[in-house]
Design a protein around this nucleic acid. Sequence first.
DNA 1: GTTGACACAGAACACTTGTTCGTATATAAT
DNA 2: ATTATATACGAACAAGTGTTCTGTGTCAAC
Lengths: 239, 239
Amino acid sequence: MSPREKKLSERHTRIMEFLNDFQEKRGYSPSIREIGDFIGVKSTSLVDYYLRQLEDMGYISRDGHVSRSICVLKPAPSAEKKAAATSPMAALREMVSIPLLGRIVASAPIPMPQLSDSSDGYFGPDSSVDVARSMLPVRERPSELFALEVDGDSMIDAMINDGDIVILRPAVEANNGDMVAVWLDDRDETTLKYFYREGNRVRLQPANPTMAPIYIDNPRHLRVMGKVVMVIRQVGLAA
Amino acid sequence: MSPREKKLSERHTRIMEFLNDFQEKRGYSPSIREIGDFIGVKSTSLVDYYLRQLEDMGYISRDGHVSRSICVLKPAPSAEKKAAATSPMAALREMVSIPLLGRIVASAPIPMPQLSDSSDGYFGPDSSVDVARSMLPVRERPSELFALEVDGDSMIDAMINDGDIVILRPAVEANNGDMVAVWLDDRDETTLKYFYREGNRVRLQPANPTMAPIYIDNPRHLRVMGKVVMVIRQVGLAA
DNA sequence: GTTGACACAGAACACTTGTTCGTATATAAT
DNA sequence: ATTATATACGAACAAGTGTTCTGTGTCAAC
């Protein structure tokens, strides 16, 4: 065939990079014309010409007459950036599945395990969060943990974003320094704060040190719902 | 819209299954007519009808007027046939080990993975973090990810605490909206910000919406080191 | 009965897309 | 000079494809 099919020209590597970038950004493969636009080739036939070479060399696969059917089979050898590679990752270590019970918003009590009847569930008990056992404190009993997705920016003073996943353990009491999910009776509000008992009153300290604490004088007005064990933020996902 | 957009009919789950199967078998997404053939629908409009519902419910994404642009955003809640019944016991509860390369502080560049594969001897990371594959975006290649522990409160405007673990992917370029780890030449500073290119300059937006962005007029003074994929905060550990 | 929401089919349309053909221009080998 | 090869453009075409519009039938509610 063409150039002995041995080495990749700069055009070839540019195409491979574009395929990777496009796939990452859009989630599917570009069309021939989109490739041509990117690498500065005016004719679709020339793009096809290069793609056939890449296909013959085994870098990509295509399905005839099917749009956007290019698949990257192996990474281009040039590729300035990564390489990293080959981690052993034969990890058979333990993993725990934590049920994702719903969403946590400031304006409503949080969903809790075993209390929630499955009949009215919006999403049902079907989603879950997988976490490596090694990432949890050894003392935790994984089976009693549950997870909630944060809805809204109201937990921002706890350094918790919209969309974050908080993993908590049911609890009605807390020790000083625990981060807890509490329901405030007089405010009708759910919040996440660090818990400190100070004599007769309770101080709820935002995780963000630049923000002021809340003081609760009557402990009856504060309902501890659970202790926060972990916060997970998946940055790359859809916003 | 149509059926309250709450629950998935059997057609919906069939479509979701087909999308997954097709994607796995062929490496790209099916066309509307291919979906129609599979679920036994004769008209493309009806397939579009269902796809719009799935899109509204957040299960898939589509790009207008682009063929085969369907992307599965989240798994359908029902129909977990493969995990239980006939399939090999290969649980897709895969776990990946991500090397913890060091600490990230504002005052120093971040440790990066060595990209030479032929390098002298391997010294594995002294520790690593385990993350369920299901928690990472499907597009991520786990082998190139690395993790850093945040040292200090300087990343607080990125909603990232002292002690948090950030998982990133090496990158030298960023797309708008990505959270990136960057080195600022003129400030001699590492920081985590949301990246937005605005004409000739770059806006670095803190995750905390109450804080002001940084503008970089000369892109040469900004070195993108990696994209943030996930942030993990283990609350119970430090006390 | 009438209404309206829902589930479907079919067709028409416009645009996208892969493919192919003809042509052109270098460069190198003959 | 001639030929062959690699590279490149443009046009044209047929198929693939997403979208939209007009129907039809069902079924429950009013």
